[in-house]
């Protein structure tokens, strides 16, 4: 009986986090979320404590991921990255992350920009918007699908939707071999 109650509690907590819709973050929380600790080379690092205290909401929460998808369109990411296939900018579906697949790296790329054309968005988007977008971008390139990931848009289909793990389905190493740093399998 106690196990059942415990199970219900766990499911309850899980459900709450996954489906919660935080329409507006508390300003202090949003400020704290901006304080990421990056490595010297601006690749990888640690998100702020509050990110874990919130239970990594931008990776596991369906609403945040779906908002990220809308921001992806609204802020013109498609202009360079297409629907994840890349273009002027790098692809998110090819199994290769220039700066690693960690949330902080993606967050830093969007916030501060990167060399060779990636602009900084810190003056155009709020901190939680950048986090939402980073979570979504990570979802595009994820090899195992999350149930919280968004599904297709009401548009022309160009690739399988995010919850079908397009990166795993479409992975194509192309004429050039996999980058030596990447290892044998994605």
């Amino acid at each position: 009986m106690r196990m059942v109650v415990l199970l219900i509690c766990i499911v309850t907590l899980g459900g709450c986090e996954r489906e919660k819709r935080e329409l507006r973050l508390d300003p202090p929380v949003a400020a704290a979320l901006d304080k990421i600790a990056l490595m010297q080379n601006r690749i990888a690092g640690a998100p702020p404590q509050v990110y874990f205290a919130l239970d990594r909401p931008f990776e596991t929460n369906a609403y945040n991921l779906s908002e990220g998808k809308r921001l992806y369109t609204w802020f013109g990411c498609k202009g360079c990255h297409g629907d994840g296939q890349g273009g002027i900018g790098p692809s998110f579906l090819d199994g290769w992350w220039y700066y690693g697949p960690e949330m902080v790296s993606i967050f830093a790329s969007i916030r501060d920009g990167r060399p060779h054309g990636m602009p900084a968005f810190k003056n155009k988007m709020t901190t939680d918007e950048i986090w939402q977008l980073a979570g979504y971008v990570q979802t595009i390139g994820a090899y195992s699908a999350k149930t919280a990931a968004p599904s297709r848009n009401d548009d022309k289909q160009v690739r399988p939707s995010e919850n079908r793990a397009p990166a795993a389905i479409l992975f194509d190493q192309g004429p050039t071999p996999v980058h030596p740093d990447q290892g044998p399998t994605p």
Binding site: E19, S66, A148, P150, N153, S161
Partner: peptide, 13 residues
Amino acid sequence: VPLSGPQYAPGKR
């Protein structure tokens, strides 16, 4: 739909 469709109704609700 489209309110309840994949684009505008995130999650499993």
